[in-house]
Design a protein around this nucleic acid. Sequence first.
DNA 1: CCAGAAACATAGGAGTCCTATTAATGAATC
DNA 2: GATTCATTAATAGGACTCCTATGTTTCTGG
Lengths: 218, 218
Amino acid sequence: MAENENNALRQRLLDGLERIATVLREDSRRGAAPFGLNVAQDSILRLLRTRPSGLRIRALAGQLGVRQPTITDSVNALERKGLVARHADPSDSRATIVKAAPHALPERARVRSAVAAALEDLSSAECAGLLRTLIKLIRGLQLRNAIPPQRMCVTCKYFRPNVYPDGDAPHYCALVNAPFGDRALRLDCPEHEEAGPAEAAQSWQIFQSRAHLPEARE
Amino acid sequence: MAENENNALRQRLLDGLERIATVLREDSRRGAAPFGLNVAQDSILRLLRTRPSGLRIRALAGQLGVRQPTITDSVNALERKGLVARHADPSDSRATIVKAAPHALPERARVRSAVAAALEDLSSAECAGLLRTLIKLIRGLQLRNAIPPQRMCVTCKYFRPNVYPDGDAPHYCALVNAPFGDRALRLDCPEHEEAGPAEAAQSWQIFQSRAHLPEARE
DNA sequence: CCAGAAACATAGGAGTCCTATTAATGAATC
DNA sequence: GATTCATTAATAGGACTCCTATGTTTCTGG
């Protein structure tokens, strides 16, 4: 009974997420079309923008959840358009490293996603709650090996959760030596270094010890 | 400054949602492949399952965020496989109504989505909060005409929010004459009837009057 | 009745995405 | 060092997605 109700609730959440996903995809299509790109190519390019050192074909496939030959196809298309280049990997001559071409890098004026617009309706507290929930979900996916490691604060060796439990900036980054709050938790930090098991267990506390209320001010 | 920080936060939310979307898509691929379907065909079929009276080509395109000829393509593919049938629309002989074939209807044992598994990590309160936030986002998308009308409680003429503000079942459905709580808010109710402006304004109160804390028990 | 709008289908083209396979290299073992 | 096994990517071939542009039919409002 309660079991059924819970399943129904989770099904609803899944449906809701899927509906948002549909819109994101549509927006991506609309945003990429003016540049002669499609959704897959745009995803690759956006991913490469945050990875100046490039990514292997295989890594791209893992990040985007498709098979390797699919990435080969799309990289070929992008290469033809001069938007990416293949480089040899010095450490492994079987591998290919794909980098965005310099002129593909600048952040283009993107068509505003409808989802971005809808996010404006959310209060500061709702945003922070949503971010926490998304991070928890993504971390759950990572733990289940459904996605490759993400470069999030909560899986980073430099992350110290809830060091100052009572302020607005309860967490601490040991790399940059600075406190910060939930709202600043990152999903794709360039300086990320994967935490070991002990640190990971500690980081997990961010989701357990505190109330569900994030800092909400401004 | 605070403006920048807000944009950064919303960008993170967008990134997080997109990451979930990628996984949903991958799961959909995995789940549909054993049946010889791809993502697009699976989406159409899943949509038709909740619409026994069928949908027009155009409506399918709107729901799935693609152009009409794309749907024609996919419906052709599904028709070849005998999973959907085209019917004439009695009220408009230009239109085609697509219905799922009877044997396509039974809920097939679906490959469990990795996102569904990750959702299990969420507490009851987090689930309820996420559902509320998703509903708010989807409603925002609908108001901005980014998506066609959805059949959610919060846009239904029979919905009465916060009638019993202090119990676990604060809302009321005037169609089935029953109270219910946030956790039972629907995204795709078969009995949905779009509310008029006055009722819509009232429904919106669900997002304003109460604290962010949903009922969390069990 | 007629012009314009609307609903689909068709055509043609680029590209996604898959499985299966091949080629080349790396790593481990004898 | 040679052999074997695993890994990386490219290729081939096929079904299909997704688009724009266009044509056909039907509906709707003067």
